[in-house]
Design a protein around this nucleic acid. Structure first.
Length: 808
DNA sequence: TTGAACGCTGG
DNA sequence: CCAGCGTTCAG
């Protein structure tokens, strides 16, 4: 995602270049974004009915061709498995916000939802089904109750109706039962694909999830038969793609569904009872739903316990079903019965509150708090913040979750997965029996009961071996829990396989093109920057502005965007134009928001620049703490808020422009040194460039791959491949010749160098920055010899002062 | 899911 | 006029 608005800010410093001038240069390519795109592309393609198999690989294929064609020596850098906890945290918070935004959408589509849902469920055999399904939908909602009050009538109504009582009845039918499964498959499957995507999107996550789940299962059984003479392999591949695409989609939904839990897990493990209780109350309305789910998958025992806990009794479900049916129909005809729901919610809340308290008592909170010390501290603040700001943080805590989350040493990184081992003493029989149908449906629950640390939503692509286990031997229903655990692990494993398979395929293709692959430990961007810093590459191809924060010096953007010309950015130019060096860019990122922090609301790139300029501690001698700038800013804001500001007459008048910003919300530990550090000293691997080599593509191998992946004939492949390979070979030999007369091919930057002018505000802000940055540079320059002279041959225009950001 | 483009808002 | 933000559309 990168730094918000940074590209736009930097735009004026870019040069448009012709690709030809990149010939022979070694550039690292950040693959991570592609993967995201590719995965998404698959989902989209599949959903929209396109049968294109392996879309992502085709994309990769064409990009490889492009690189080859222009004689670019690319090094592909993969993201590593070590996802910084900062990043996870940020993603989480973002999700929270996004979800909130989503609420609006959903509200808008409420009617649609109602309609669709009603249709679906009324089709389903009987009230039972209907009950159960709608029940599940309500679960999904994962929405703050206040919102839910008027947002989805159907769900709420259903909610209110069956809510606390009938669950026990509904649940058994719901997930595990094959009959229900069949029904879902029968009715929802077709509709799943036929539903307008928008409507689909409008559906509550869990409902969507179920729809997809049903589709997935159905695809197993139904799509097996190729219709035409279509060959089997094609059909199979389609199926595969569809399936993985579905699980992709599903995992997204699941993420949505879980989103709340991690927060709770955090707050529970970090903060303590009181504040939490308040929050919990809010969340509670959700809880019962999870309990419902729990009951579904686990069996009677669990059910009983839950009931006990929740003070829930099962009423005559028949009556309830009736009621519900009516109300949902009612809803369709358009009358939100919010009142019912609210009432119900309140009731639940009380009940749950009790149960939660109960469970909350015994805890290892201390341990986890200690373990995660600093990071969790900031987490706490952030969390508290977010939940207060968004009065309706959506949170659900199944009681189960609470327990497990407390046990978990907060998000102390992937390792935590090992922490708790689950002895599965279980009814594997049952499990196996129901496995197929159960798994997808159960997922939401399973996942939702994952504490943050292991929540897959936070894991990066390749990572995540985090099979979470709850150490939860809790009396009689332990078995059931184990069962759940097992399923969860299955689900995760399956999912992991999907992405890791994608990775493997990508790597295979890349290597067959004769290009090297680097797998960094963590951020690909950081690894790219390192490669450049160590002169293994001469720049990075990426669209991710994080590269600057990690120390990238030369960046090519839009290289694979057909509609745009390639833009070249250069750190030196940036520093010259803006007075922003790497450290300042990090500061800017911390203000504006980036992968590691959500930033300060209301501050964009321009304001951040102004702030950095304004609050720059102009004592240049102290290289020590660049964060001081942000601290000053925050302190100033706080003074303003407290009204103390007027005392200081020495305040520059220029600061008035920030007056309104003073009221902004800072992330808990605002100038967080961890973030600063994460960018300046990222985890990277020391790559030996002797291990990197470029060869001409292995045509035979590529033919094989394309034929098995895309179903291309040899000729088809050759049509794409051969001309490019020929040219590449020609370029290569030419290049070798050219080694002698070095500088002949000199960078034709398109003359319209200045793409856009600097805005007035930016100009003003940066003039000051420039002044100070030059001083700094002067001081350093003695010790940093010109590294770019080496590269100057291919790109002479701006080998100004090579600035090396030094790590402290 | 992400980025680009557009329009709205507020200073 | 300009920044920031939300929305929308497309690959």
């Amino acid at each position: 995602m990168g730094v918000k608005g940074l590209w736009k800010l930097l735009q004026p410093s870019s040069r448009l270049i012709k690709l030809d001038c990149l010939e022979g240069t070694k550039l690292s390519v950040d693959l991570s974004i592609w993967l995201h795109q590719a995965i998404h592309a698959r989902v989209v393609a599949a959903i929209s009915g396109s049968d294109e198999p392996r879309v992502h690989l085709q994309l990769l294929f064409h990009r490889l061709l492009k690189l080859l064609f222009y004689g670019i020596r690319a090094i592909f850098v993969f993201d590593g498995p070590e996802v910084s906890s900062l990043k996870k945290r940020t993603q989480l918070l973002r999700r929270l916000r996004v979800n909130q935004a989503t609420l609006k959408c959903r509200r808008t589509h409420a009617k649609l939802v109602k309609h669709i849902a009603t249709v679906h469920f009324s089709k389903a055999e009987e009230g039972r089904q209907l009950l159960s399904s709608s029940n599940s939908t309500s679960n999904d909602s994962c929405m703050p109750k206040d919102v839910s009050a008027n947002s989805y009538s159907l769900l709420e109504v259903a909610d209110g109706a069956d809510d606390d009582k009938s669950d026990s009845q509904l649940s058994p039918k719901r997930s595990p039962s094959p009959t229900l499964w069949d029904n879902l498959a029968a009715f929802d499957l077709p509709s799943c694909s036929s539903i307008d995507p928008q409507c689909m999107a409008a559906l509550p996550s869990e409902l969507q999830f179920q729809l997809y789940a049903s589709k997935k299962s159905a695809s197993c059984s139904l799509e097996d038969l190729p219709e035409d003479s279509a060959d089997f392999s094609t059909a199979q591949m389609k199926r595969l793609v569809n399936r993985s695409e579905l699980s992709e989609k599903m995992s997204r939904l699941r993420n949505e569904i879980i989103l709340s839990d991690p927060v709770i897990a955090l707050s529970l493990s970090v903060g303590q009872a009181d504040s939490n209780l308040v929050r919990l109350r809010k969340m509670l309305s959700r809880d019962q739903k999870h309990h419902v789910l729990l009951e579904d998958e686990a069996t009677a025992q669990v059910k009983e316990e839950n009931e006990q806990k929740l003070n829930v009794q099962s009423n005559s479900h028949t009556g309830r079903q009736q009621h519900e049916l009516e109300s949902s129909l009612h809803a369709t005809t358009d009358e939100p019965d919010a009142s019912i729901t609210v009432g119900a919610d309140l009731v639940e809340e009380e009940d749950l509150l009790v149960s939660v308290r109960k469970e909350h008592d015994g805890d290892d909170v201390d341990r986890s708090t200690k373990v995660s010390n600093s990071s969790s501290a900031s987490l706490e603040v952030l969390d508290a913040e977010s939940s207060s700001r968004n009065t309706l943080s959506t949170i659900c805590i199944p009681s189960e979750d609470i327990r497990s989350s407390e046990r978990t040493p907060t998000e102390h990184d992937h390792n935590s997965s090992v922490v708790l081992s689950s002895p599965s003493t279980d009814d594997s029989d049952d499990f196996i029996e129901v496995e197929e149908p159960t798994e997808p449906i159960n997922r939401p629950l399973l996942l939702s009961s994952q504490p943050l640390a292991r929540s897959p939503s936070l894991e990066s692509i390749g990572s995540s071996s985090s099979s979470s286990k709850d150490a939860s031997p809790d009396g009689d229903h332990e078995d059931n829990i184990d069962l759940l655990r097992k399923e969860r692990m299955h689900a995760e494993a399956a999912e992991k396989n999907v992405t890791s398979q994608i990775l493997e395929e990508c790597e295979e293709l890349i290597r067959s093109f004769g290009m090297p692959v680097v797998k960094g430990p963590a951020e690909a961007e950081a690894q790219c920057a390192w490669l450049e810093e160590n002169n293994i590459t001469e720049g990075t191809i990426t669209d991710d502005s994080d590269i600057w924060l990690f120390g990238g010096r030369r960046v090519y953007r839009h290289l694979f965007n057909v509609k745009k010309t390639v833009e070249r950015f250069d750190m030196n130019t940036i520093t010259n134009i803006y007075g922003l060096d790497r450290e300042r860019l990090v500061l800017l990122a911390m203000l504006v928001g980036c992968d590691y922090t959500v930033g300060v609301e209301g501050i964009g790139a321009v304001r951040a620049t102004e702030i950095i300029a304004e609050f720059d501690p102009t004592k240049e001698d102290q290289t020590s703490d660049r964060l001081e700038c942000l601290r000053l800013f925050r302190a100033w804001c706080e003074r303003i808020i407290n009204g103390n500001n007027h005392g200081d007459t020495d305040e520059p008048v220029t600061r008035e422009r920030f007056a309104k910003l003073a009221h902004c919300q800072f992330p808990g530990s605002f100038p967080d040194p961890l973030i600063f550090d994460a960018f300046l000293r990222p985890r990277v691997d020391q790559v030996d460039d002797r291990t990197l080599s470029w060869n001409l593509p292995d045509v035979d191998k590529i033919r094989n791959l394309t034929s098995s992946w895309f179903g291309w004939s040899k000729e088809q492949t050759d049509r794409h491949l051969l001309p490019v390979v020929k040219r590449a070979a020609a370029l290569q030999s030419k290049r070798q010749k050219r080694l002698d007369d070095f500088c002949t091919t000199v960078a034709p930057t398109l003359s319209n160098s200045q793409v856009a002018p600097l805005s007035q505000r930016v100009k003003r802000a940066t003039s000051r920055l420039k002044a100070t940055v030059h001083n700094r540079k002067r001081r350093q320059s003695s010790q940093a010899p010109d590294t770019s002279s080496k590269l100057a041959g291919w790109c002479p225009s701006e080998a100004d002062k090579p600035k090396r950001s030094r790590l402290t």
